[in-house]
Nucleic acid binder design. Structure first.
Length: 472
RNA sequence: GGCCCCAUCGUCUAACGGCUAGGACACCAGGUUUUCAUCCUGGCAAUAGGGGUUCGAUUCCCCUUGGGGUCACCA
């Protein structure tokens, strides 16, 4: 293992709503870098746009991170609580002659933009004529006086990146409402918080030269930059977004996904460790993750793969008692009166067909409730519909007679069911289906012997009687 | 439009410049004493195109094409 300096990373969402899988993946990667180096992970809230802020999102974001198990060491730190800090830094730039009050009105600027667009040229603002460099009184937007030049820099994910001087312009540092822009605030904060790795989504690549220019003006050494490829919406080439129906990460919590599986899935969206391994525990991720191995291209979000992975975690990676503890909120209402032992048995026999806990009610309801006879299960059954009601009745009577003698252990039931097969000369597709339908009234259920054993003798025989009565 | 970035099965991905381009999801078929599922076996399916460099390119270089990002008093 190579020695690693403790990294300080941050996740800096704006409180404009919920977090979807793309946002959580960004947080995850930043968190992994901090954890694997023994450093700190900071949660910072970028709430400098009061208009777009959505009430309650800060709590919601924290709940989301907590659910997946991403714990922050510092924060949440709100930028809106730090306005005097940005003002102080802005003042320094003004003193140095590296910032000036915007000489134009919003309307005039919009005009410039429209002209640039009509001429199919990029809009750049960097007119340093003396009459433009106005004194700032704090009530106007404050612009950075840029020093356009070419840059070449190393990105931890993208590798070497470079641009010419033409991409740098005099961007706004402070808005007229007294709040800083993202472009300014994040640089001040990252410096003040001693952030070592800025890990964020790829849309910021184009702005990095401007940031580099500002770092220079501020006399700061830039942190390591790591630009993450997008998580793409399924079926398209656009990045996943709330507008395209990206779900709140907490919706997955509500559907009974496991946070470990979610993390495993997100980590392998755009990253792998150069092997064919695809199941990673969180501890393995902390150990093996590396920014260098992140792909440069976007990765599509495939919910079917998430489902498969969650099912895999449910049946292979979680201990039965732990799994049961996590299933608590998902049982059907009818299960309320049943004790934990009974439910544990039901879960044990059901887990292999469970992809997420929200499926629990439909998969297990017949273990808990009284059943209404559904004649279609027999009339629609490929094999059973060929038999006369009297034949079905005769078969069920035989089954009942044998089961009445059983102690209803799985072993004994299995043995009796096999004997019955021989004695009646029936195919399992007929005999077992009939008993299964009689005792569960469900189109699908777990293995017959195991199901009967959980149902118990009284209830199983009672259901067979009900089915017999219905076959008249 | 300028600038920047990206490109292996439908999807997630593997392949010191060197086997018939591998695995997984999904899908299809078969098997395991019923159903659904699990599990096992098999199948379908990719290096965007064109030039180089090389004994040999998925891999390195160039061009084309395609896709994406960005050009806000949003982050």
């Amino acid at each position: 293992m190579k020695p690693m300096k403790p990294a300080r990373t941050r996740f800096a969402p704006s409180p404009t709503g919920f977090l979807h899988v793309g946002g959580v993946r960004t947080a995850l990667f930043a968190w992994l870098v901090a954890r694997q180096s023994g450093g700190q992970f900071i949660l910072r809230i970028e709430d400098t746009d009061k208009i777009r802020e959505v009430a309650g999102s800060i709590e919601h974001i924290q709940d989301s991170l907590k659910w997946v198990g991403i714990k922050w060491d510092e924060g949440p730190i709100k930028q809106s609580d730090r306005l005097d800090i940005y003002k102080k830094w802005a003042g320094k730039l003004v003193e140095q002659g590296r910032a000036y009050a915007d000489p134009y009105s919003p309307k005039e600027l919009q005009n410039f933009r429209d002209q640039a667009k009509a001429a199919k040229k990029p809009f750049l603002f960097r007119d340093h004529r003396p009459e433009n460099l106005l004194k700032w009184d704090g009530s106007q937007p404050l612009r950075f006086k840029s020093d356009p030049k070419p840059y070449t820099w190393q990105d931890a994910v993208m590798g070497e990146l470079s641009t010419g001087p033409e991409v740098i312009d005099d961007f706004i540092l402070m808005k007229s409402d007294g709040y800083p822009t993202y472009n300014f605030a994040h640089i001040v904060d990252d410096a003040e918080m001693n952030i070592t790795h800025v890990i964020r989504s790829q849309e910021f690549v184009a702005s990095v030269p401007k940031y580099l220019n500002l770092y220079e003006a501020l006399g700061l050494t830039p942190p390591v930059m790591a630009m993450l490829p997008y998580v793409m919406a399924p079926g398209g080439n656009k990045k996943l977004s709330k507008r395209d129906g990206a779900k709140d990460i907490l919706d997955y919590a509500g559907e009974g996904y496991l946070p470990e599986a979610m993390l495993n899935f997100l980590a392998t969206l755009g990253w792998n460790d150069d092997t064919e391994q695809e199941i990673f525990t969180t501890a393995e991720l902390i150990k093996k993750f590396s920014l260098k191995e992140i792909h440069k291209g976007g990765a599509h979000f495939d919910e079917r793969r998430l489902e498969w992975m969650n099912g895999f975690w449910i049946r292979e990676k979680i201990e039965p008692d732990d799994l049961f503890a996590r299933s608590k909120d998902f049982w059907p209402d009818e299960a309320a009166g049943y004790d934990d032992e009974y439910k544990k048995n039901v879960l044990a026999i059901t887990r292999e067909r469970l992809k997420y806990f929200a499926e629990l009610p439909e998969l297990t309801r017949f273990f808990f409730t009284d059943l209404a006879i559904n004649p279609e299960l027999i009339s629609d059954h490929k094999q059973l519909k060929k038999l006369l009601p009297t034949e079905l009745k005769e078969l069920l009577e035989q089954a009942k007679a044998s089961l009445e003698q059983s102690d209803f252990t799985v072993d004994d039931l299995t043995k009796r069911l096999n004997d019955l097969l021989e004695r009646t000369g029936q195919k399992p597709a007929v005999l077992f289906s009939l008993i299964r339908i009689a005792t569960t009234q469900a189109p699908a259920s777990p293995g017959l012997a195991g199901t009967l054993a959980i149902l118990g003798k009284d209830r199983s025989l009672a259901r067979i009687d009900e089915q017999l009565a219905a076959l008249r």
